[in-house]
């Protein structure tokens, strides 16, 4: 972990529930109960300055919700988010809050929806600079935007164009340039390459790694692609139905996965090396987050589940530099084994 020491971003007991019940009248007339999605259900994360912390998990497990909570798009139902020692929900003056916001930015998944189609690229990138009053004048603003465009390997003359004149990969570069415009230290990236082709994905991932090194950025990186996560992360958190089931340094997670769900996810990675390894299809479907299973929410799909798993929610236990929330690991029922991967030749 670069820098180590004080935690730059600290998330404690974070919860976010969504009320998805039918309207009050309908509910009363038809005698339906309230329905609440427990999108994020008690999560603790600490991210050190300069590292890339990744969240992985299946669709609907709450990754995007965590991202939105962190940048303040949703207020949390419970829990706290600390950024560089500041409680984000605490009382701040307007200018203090703006100063905090300036230091964190978000990159979105869809390069076609994340840029206002009616705005020129120049204005899209200039918006945060203007909003935070960072530039000293028109010439300075133009110089800043040009520098940002160059930083993401686009041409400053591209500022005059509209988003639809660019390909998906180029648009994602524009999003990155915009996110960098307020000179943030912390970037939340919600599936920044999921909508892109692999060759374009490689360009964007390389760019993100370069920028991180040059600007000492800290990333919260969200993806469902384990190979991408393996490539880019310092540490990885595995989410299942709104909870973190395992957190570990990247190499440890991929070499010695502990939680049964992590192991299962690793088994689903397509085998490009063609060693003849069969992807073992995961049994069962992702349960609904509206009525999550009791105890360990993974128990209906877990081959190691026992009665305790059905009744008691497992706690996150420290192990090998990370944490795991699983009774079988705690009880020593489930041995931890090393995995090997065929090397790309």
């Amino acid at each position: 972990m670069p820098d180590g020491g004080a935690d730059f971003v600290r998330i404690e007991g974070l919860k976010r529930y969504f009320d998805v019940s039918a309207p009050w009248l309908v509910r009363k007339l038809e005698g339906r109960p309230r329905q609440v999605v427990q999108a994020v259900d008690g999560i603790d994360i600490e991210i050190a300055k300069g590292e890339t912390f990744s969240l992985v998990g299946e669709s609907g497990c709450g990754k995007s919700t965590v991202a939105r909570l962190v940048v303040g798009l949703y207020p949390p139902t419970a829990g706290r988010i600390e950024f560089d020692g500041n409680d984000m929900a605490g009382r701040h003056s307007r200018s203090d809050m703006a100063a905090l916001r300036r230091r964190m930015q978000m990159i979105f998944q869809d390069p076609f929806a994340s840029l206002n189609p009616r705005w020129r690229v120049f204005d899209i990138i200039a918006e945060p600079i203007r909003a935070f009053g960072l530039s000293t004048g028109k010439a300075d603003l133009e110089a800043r935007v040009a520098a940002l465009l160059r930083q993401v390997k686009l041409n400053p003359a591209d500022g005059r164009k509209y988003p639809h004149e660019f390909s998906g990969g180029q648009r994602q570069r524009i999003s990155i340039a915009r996110a960098l415009a307020s000179e943030p230290e912390f970037l939340v990236c919600d599936e920044p390459t999921s909508a892109l082709d692999v060759s374009v994905q490689a360009q964007i991932l390389n760019l993100m790694v370069d920028l991180q090194r040059r600007l000492q950025l800290t990333y919260l990186f969200i993806s469902h692609n384990l190979a991408v996560v393996y490539h880019i992360s310092t540490r990885v958190g595995v989410m299942y139905l709104g909870r973190l089931v395992e957190v570990a340094p990247t190499d440890t997670l991929f070499r010695r996965p502990k939680h049964p769900y992590t192991r299962m996810l690793l088994d689903t990675i397509p085998d490009l090396e063609m060693t003849g390894r069969q992807r073992s299809p995961v049994g069962g479907e992702v349960p609904s987050p509206i009525n999550p299973p009791s105890g360990c929410t993974f128990h209906p799909r877990c081959p190691f589940a026992n009665d305790r798993c059905k009744a008691e929610r497992p706690k996150a236990l420290p192990i090998e530099g990370g944490t795991v929330a699983c009774h079988a690991i705690e009880e020593g029922r489930l041995p931890i084994e090393d995995r090997t991967y065929a090397l790309n030749t």
Binding site: V198, S199, A227, Y230
Partner: peptide, 22 residues
């Protein structure tokens, strides 16, 4: 280039191979 740009498990490189341009 396409094959090189696919991140793979097993080897972690600083940078992925990339094909410049679009």
């Amino acid at each position: 280039g396409l094959m090189g740009s696919i991140p793979s498990l097993g080897v972690r490189t600083e940078r992925l191979t990339q094909i410049d341009g679009a």
